[in-house]
Design a protein around this nucleic acid. Sequence first.
RNA 1: GGAGGGGUUCCCGAGUGGCCAAAGGGAUCAGACUGUAAAUCUGACGCGAAAGCUUCGGUGGUUCGAAUCCACCCCCCUCCA
Length: 432
Amino acid sequence: MSSALLADLRARGLIFQIAGEDDLPAWLDGGVRTLYCGFDPTADSLHIGSLVPLLMLRRFQLAGHKPLALVGGATGLIGDPSFKAQERQLNTPEVVSGWVAKLQQQVSRFIEFDDGPVSAEVVNNLDWTANMDVLTFLRDVGKHFSVNAMIQKESVKQRIEREGSGISYTEFTYMILQSFDFAELNKRYDCTLQLGGSDQWGNITGGIDLTRRLNGNQVFGLTMPLITKADGTKFGKTESGTIWLDAAKTSPYAFYQFWLGCADADVYRFLKYFTFLEVDEINEIERADAERQGRPEAQAILAQEVTRLVHGDEGLAAAQRITESLFSGSIEDLAEGDLAQLRQDGLPASTVSRADFPETLTQMLTDAGMAGSGKQVKDALGRNAVTVNNRSLGWEDNARVAASFEPSEALHGRFYLCKLGKKKYHLFEIGA
RNA sequence: GGAGGGGUUCCCGAGUGGCCAAAGGGAUCAGACUGUAAAUCUGACGCGAAAGCUUCGGUGGUUCGAAUCCACCCCCCUCCA
């Protein structure tokens, strides 16, 4: 039943370390097991960094195990110091609980809740920590931890040893809290496996030790590799910031574009990490791409698969509609309804009335969010990198805003598709 | 509580009285080349169309002139007690 799962995960490169490696395959094969992975509320949405663990829960579920998604209502109040260079700012309980509610909803999209014995559940560690008093915590939980061992953990080492940083007692306690979660889930749900990113190894093994001491049970841990990019830059961030899972924060279109822009050197690896396509299938794609000249197909497949997983068929369709019209089609062919639809679909857009035109294009495009400052627009104009409905504008047009948005050039009387550089589009809807 | 080190533009990091909007690197943006790639090369990179305006932890002061000197304050780190 499940050593096949481990083999698949290994083939995908999704396994970094396993605690209890010798016994885990047999344990998984022996029946329905409950496993969990935690997600701390550090923002009002998860970002794509959480995608691998989320899909991992689903992979286990598909293989016949019961996943628990833990949203850290308690741990989110403390802050995980693991491999963080600096102490983090505490968020207020109100803010955190608001985030918890959002994450619970988000997490739920990736796992199946109505699936018999392997039905997923969402749990919150605030449930078993909120009412625990300090003395009980210190006596029943803290007593099992050796500070000597804790300060040896790689995850907090730089905070303890490196000059220029430090760690508060609060954050130092995080590991104990997370360990307690595992022991508690073991007791409540018979949970015997914890998943996490490789940065969670220290916290996971802490939980394994505590579970053994508190409950006398052997439990397992599995970590996934840190997602890296071939060029060494951080995965999941772009020029415009974090790629969120929330459609309101990162539109399906932007999300789709993110994956489409994936480097050749990364794309096949990412297909294995982020999709449910079979490894053989992915290898086949890679071979086909290698034989073909020019543009590989893998990015399009990756973008399609992941966007569908996160935003559903509708979100994917919207993203592809926009992409198609901007990069392949010609904008003159777009029907009036299509343009309105693009706006609906999440193409950056704004409505301006002629009476409110600013003095300069630099102002107008900066206001629209197309550039961070007028200087950037100036630079782009100077290189003929700005177009409005396919007509290129130059620096000399800067003060001629109205002339740049000639009524006679409007699409369907009111739309102007403005492009800055090669990829940045903005739809202006201009009324009288 | 004591001693010492430090806080510079997104990040790292130079800069100890004018030549400093502040070296260098990274990141980012734009152009060429391309595949809406990569690598490479070029330009931009506090704000502003410009005139000009605002920055070097904070507040005051010295000076014709301060990121640089002085005073006080805040924050961080290390060691000692």
